[in-house]
Amino acid sequence: MATERDDDGLESFFAAARGAGRPSDDLVARVLADAAAVQGAGRAPAPAPLPRSGGWFSGLAGALGGWPAVSGVTLAGVAGLVLGFTAPDLVDSWSGGQIWSLSGGVGTMPEIGALWEEAGDV
């Protein structure tokens, strides 16, 4: 604090002014609210929640477009399987006889015995 001779009689006025700057509770609250806002803004944003870990199958489902897409693929696969078992000739006719020729003449449903024979020949 300044300690000077009070030749001009001003010191009494200055003394009256010292301490007159006590802030009101409202001002203190506003300043602290500003401080909290700045601190909140400066804090790193919370990381986005990680996807639930569901193993490789969940990853595969995600790659395919999610569970709705997986169910569609599954339905198509099952339908194809049923169709192949119940009406193999129809499937072959749809393919224009290509499956017959590619299978070496055994058709879409070779007899299981033929596989054994092939294994035995080796």
Binding site: A17, G21, R22, L27, L32, A35, Q39, R43
Partner: peptide, 27 residues
């Protein structure tokens, strides 16, 4: 400390500095 998110630092700095800033500005 304030920059590191310490709320107590804000209160102490306000207590120390706000009266000076206000007094200066008021006069």
């Amino acid at each position: 400390l304030f920059a590191n998110g310490d709320p107590g630092a804000a209160r102490v700095l306000t207590g120390r500095l706000l009266p000076r800033a206000l007094s200066h500005a008021a006069r």
